[in-house]
Design a protein around this nucleic acid. Sequence first.
RNA 1: GGGCAUGUAGCUCAGUUGGUUAGAGCACCGCCUUGAUAAGGCGGGGGUCACUGGUUCGAGUCCAGUCCUGCCCA
Length: 914
Amino acid sequence: MSEAKNYKDTVLLPKTDFPMKADLVIREPKRLEKWTAENLYQQIQSQTKGKPTFILHDGPPFANGDVHMGTALNKVLKDLIVKSKTMAGFHAPFVPGWDCHGLPIEFKVVKSAAGLTPVQIRTLSEAEARKYIDIQRASFKRLGVFGDWENPYLTLDPAYESGILRTFGKAVEKGLVYRMKRPVLWSYGAQTALAEAEVEYKEKTSPAIYVKFALVSPPPGSEGASLVIWTTTPWTLPANLAIALHPEFDYVSGKFTHADGRSKTLVIAKSRLEAFQAATGFILDTAHPSDAFKGSALNGSDAQHPFLPRTSKVINTLFVTDDTGTGAVHIAPGHGADDYQAGREHGLDILSPVDPDGKYTAECGLPDFVGKHVFSSNEGIIEILATNGALLGNEKYVHQYPHCWRSKTPIIFRAVEQFFIKIDAIRQKALEQIDTVTWLPAWGRNRIYGTVESRPDWCISRQRTWGVPLPVFYTAEGEIIMRTDIIGKVADLVEKQGTNLWFEKDDAWWAEAVGLPADTKRGNDTLDVWIDSGCSHVSVLDQHPELHCPADLYIEATDQHRGWFQSSLMMSIVARNAAPYKSVITHGFVVDTSGKKISKSDQGAGKSAKPMTADHYYNKYGGDMVRLWVSSVDYQNEVPFSEELFQQTSESYRRIRNTFRVLLGNLHDENVGQAARLPESLTLIDRWILERLHNLSLECEKAYESYDFRKVFTVVNQFISADLSSLYIDITKDRMYCDAADSPRRRATQSVIREVTETLCLWLAPILAFTADEVWEHLGHTKSIHLQGFRLANPNHVFDGVATAVEDLLKARAVIQQAIEAARQAKQIGSNLEATVHLTLPNTGFDHPVFSDLPTLREFFILSDLHLTRAETLAATVEVCTNAKCERCWRHLPDVGTHEAHPTLCGRCEEAVS
RNA sequence: GGGCAUGUAGCUCAGUUGGUUAGAGCACCGCCUUGAUAAGGCGGGGGUCACUGGUUCGAGUCCAGUCCUGCCCA
């Protein structure tokens, strides 16, 4: 015994199999397999059945493209909520979903091959959607997101589609759906409507002409005056119904004279005068009096159409600009988006006398032009204008003009029949319902309120193939048949066989199937995809046995105030006259570190931009690292992201992991039976850490309740680094390593360590889904941590006077450390244990009994030798300790050398090794 | 151009109803330790609180305006 040279073997150092190196990339997939094998998600659901429910309804991501960090942020946030609600005692099933229809997929498919039939387009589109569903599902699972991954909801499921149709039927039943012409981007080359994404901008030379419209009743002093418009599409003049002025712009009315002798009284925006004179040669005759007024002065007057027997209304709109033209804008509501909007606001017709080939119809009012292509009619129109004196200028104008991606022909705006939902009929109810919902952050309420307040009627038809068909029919005479009972029959058929049926069967089949005359034809339009996802409360919340409507929570990015939150609200008003959610959270977008939005075009081959797909990060750092990053950001604002920031998070992870490792290591010889309950005889530092743990639990509980994961992250980090690492673990090292294994204070500490480790681990489980489970396993548990509840703050862990005593101790500690540091920098000592410290405490305060308890003070300050005095102020001096060093515990103590059997040990260590 | 947000150390963020010298974590620098060791401890440097003006004894905090950035519109 006395021969034992190496006392190190008698020191009870931490021992654990829990590896310091996380190897998350290797370990996490194994844990995932285990979770899958034991059906963990289903276990959680059946174990929590009967508890109060918490339904977070998943907003379906578009099934196109990889999971990027923004998508990951969204899904992990949802998972943090679901996991924390589960651990807080709720039954919180999570049914993920995907938005499957829509242009981007169809466009991709159509681009890949020419001449596809609608059925082929739909088959390929479905395959494309399913491909990305699989890719995204794999990513979400890999990120540790729990949910019913084998039974997600898809907007292309027949059951889902029938829900959409029935909700549409309800809108029809309530008289909310109407038909009206509206201009769309039209390709006469491909004979189809196009979306903005299908348009390519190319250079085109167009005529740019100045045309006068004589005012029918000009303001006094401007007798015989004409408004002058500027247009690059003369062919739209037959559809002109109005002229728009800006109400705030200054306009000049005066006599203009041309070098060729022509003279006209014209009205031009003051700021455009110079440009107009230069372009047309008409010069304002300053000798004659001219009149100036605001655009609002002419609002409501009439102007004579230059070649048709009708007048155009003079209106005021705010979109009139003064960077081109004359400040007076030619309005053809059937041929432009702004024009259409202005037309709706001012009660104009939607005149669009152009057929699908781009040729004039009889409606154009010019018999000679009927059947003629609009672009080859420009010259003819200009001639007419010149002939009747309305043409004031004619130039060539080179500009970027939209062209069809497929036929390469220039696009025209052309009005076609569209279907709309009458928002006015449901607006008031929607606004009321907005105020029954909790919006987080609170400004979200104003955001969506403003959006709903001002939104125009909802155009719900699309001239597309990859979508849910708009279930209407037409009689042989072209009369529309839009009936709830027939829509119901379509929905019944779709529920069994899917919407492909609409495209596979012919008109006759459908006519018979829904009980209409044999010569009935079905419609060609599909529904706006926002209708699809906006019906999820009907198709998912109402249908799924574990879910219900309204959901407790929707959470998506801020753009969804205008998107899904709104479409869901509207469709829910249609379906049930109430909001589909009780509360709504929004999160920001992921941006790069300079605060710029990360655009998809910066990604991909040849670009220098950093990787933004989630797989890059979970394959390099691990899923828990992504999750920890999510928990660390302020998701209510834009979320800055870069790989460097990500590495910063991984530093935090390492700290957390190492702390767990040393805690686990200190439990290696734990007396399990004893550890189950905390002994009465806890030392000061044990009581203190339990009280800190109590506070931590209070804060974490509150933070999870308010979805403030960053708070959990911060509070846990500070607890780990300030309370545990630099104090509790450091201070208790001596007793843990060097006391006899069964010393009461060592055992007490061990019990506290278990309590701390388990509680902390549980609080972290929603965030570090993999690591917490791993730690839990190493704590000796056989069931997953995800089947546990949080361990709430224990009031028995609050002790009288302890917190203030430790506050004082820390003040003294700071003074001591500074003194020691000075000695260390002066190379007088190295380790703290080599110092003798004279501590002077102030006469007042510092009156807890511990301040007369030298052994405890020495332990707390981790010193070999401490001497106390009282004086005016807190101070400390340091000298080199002259005591011999105990070879085992490294403290310099006076009794080293007094023990015969172990001459190099102190008394405590001598006993411990005997 | 409009609406809604946002702006505090190199980075990510705290800063209660206005009140000492504006804090934390990470990063950085120096030292110690080598019994948490691809770890740990101690000490330190670093900020005109976006800008301008105002209210006040006193403003990161309240008010007005400007600018940056983001989302949604036009």
